[in-house]
Design a protein around this nucleic acid. Structure first.
Lengths: 218, 218
DNA sequence: TCGCCAATGTAAATAATATTTACATTGAAT
DNA sequence: ATTCAATGTAAATATTATTTACATTGGCGA
């Protein structure tokens, strides 16, 4: 059932192909492996993949889902390694994000490239993305601990995620050190996240006009 | 000289191809035009492009440069439309960035996709990217006006750019409204930028340990 | 148990493109 | 006027994705 001893019928080709593709991407650092390569790596003919994926695009979408799982996993690990709702934990989660982007470059960009998938496909993938939920919880707990439990953690987590994402992307494009080679991505993120969190707990006066939407919604 | 009346020699094929490619990208919203299409649009044979670009990748790199110019241009316009060093101007620049990402989706992603170009090529492209410089100046002037002229504007501009970039990217991937459809990209950015700027002028106490690198370098 | 079938594989086309090759044209400098 | 380097063209090539027509097989109902 698991591993057929005779060949012809592979038994789990779909997953084998996803894995093969992921390995080729990892090896080459690009997405331009060929279907034939992936098939060969899984031990089948070049046409076989099409019994499981309508196109290379679809295989790539499956690999992307795997990448999201990987990021989720890293987030969970980070979560468990730190005290709930600690500033330290939030920053560590950011570092995990930057490290993932750096170490799994090709996968990270695959995750955010436009693969023209259907709205349903996207929704499904998104609903599985738990990494962001981890951040939301951390921010929520952080605020509660600081006595500001009525803050809209989802909103601020989104802001912090955006910052982390931007830093990761710009770093990948060597744009962060455009005019200053000494800028450190993690420092930039730590610093920004701290400022944001401080801003939440202690809304700035003077410089800040309207601040609608900062409080938790009903 | 500009427009040869006889054909055969086009006169300015290189640019014509870049324009043709840009138009095809604009029209289809994707990068998968064919070299033959672009060539036809420029009125030449399918092989002609290779006298000017070694590969489709290289043509795409040229289009990317054009996209950067477009963003620069938008930034300049925004700069001129607002008072120097005003908070309003900084926020408007952010809106320009988000609008560009939204309206020139395909170009925006082309700008940040890995096209595997050489370090020199990238340096050259980067050095031309003036949009970021506009932001740096705005932040610098803003700080001076607020009496904090010794702040490292480059550092904080990078932080704000990162935030804007992350928001733009996540929005393009429909990730911003993952759990809350009411989140508005521009609001998120305005809010974050305000918090950051407030944080600069009035460094938070209590929540913020080490803050190395926040002051202007010597 | 036997025979059928849907699922899954295979080898051999197809098709779409990028890219190369061998040859043509042309404007400009000598 | 001649020649050459640059620039074009048409006709290969090469590489892949994808399809087609046929093969194998495991499981399921009779």
């Amino acid at each position: 059932m698991t591993q057929a001893r005779c060949n012809y019928h592979h038994g789990d080709l779909s997953n084998a192909l996803i894995t093969a593709a992921a390995e080729l991407i990892e090896r080459d650092g690009t997405l331009d492996f060929t279907m034939a390569e992936a098939a060969a790596k899984a031990g089948v003919s070049a046409a076989a993949p099409y019994r499981h994926f309508a196109s290379k695009e679809e295989l790539l979408r499956a690999v992307r889902d795997l990448a999201f799982l990987g990021l989720d996993h890293a987030a969970m690990e980070t979560l468990e390694a730190h005290e709930a709702g600690s500033l330290e934990g939030i920053l560590a989660l950011g570092h995990t994000y930057l490290a993932f982007a750096r170490e799994k470059r090709a996968f990270f960009s695959l995750m955010w490239e436009d693969r023209g998938d259907s709205a349903e496909r996207r929704l499904e993938a998104q609903s599985k993305y738990g990494g962001f939920g981890v951040l939301v919880n951390m921010v929520q707990t952080f605020c509660e601990k600081q006595g500001s439990g009525d803050i809209d953690a989802l909103y601020f987590a989104t802001q912090i995620w955006s910052l982390a994402h931007g830093i990761a992307t710009l770093e990948a494009n060597q744009m962060l050190d455009l005019f200053d080679a000494s800028i450190q991505p993690e420092h930039l993120l730590d610093d920004g996240a701290r400022t944001m969190l401080a801003g939440i707990l202690n809304p700035a006066v003077g410089t800040t006009p309207k601040r609608a939407g900062m409080q938790k919604r009903a």
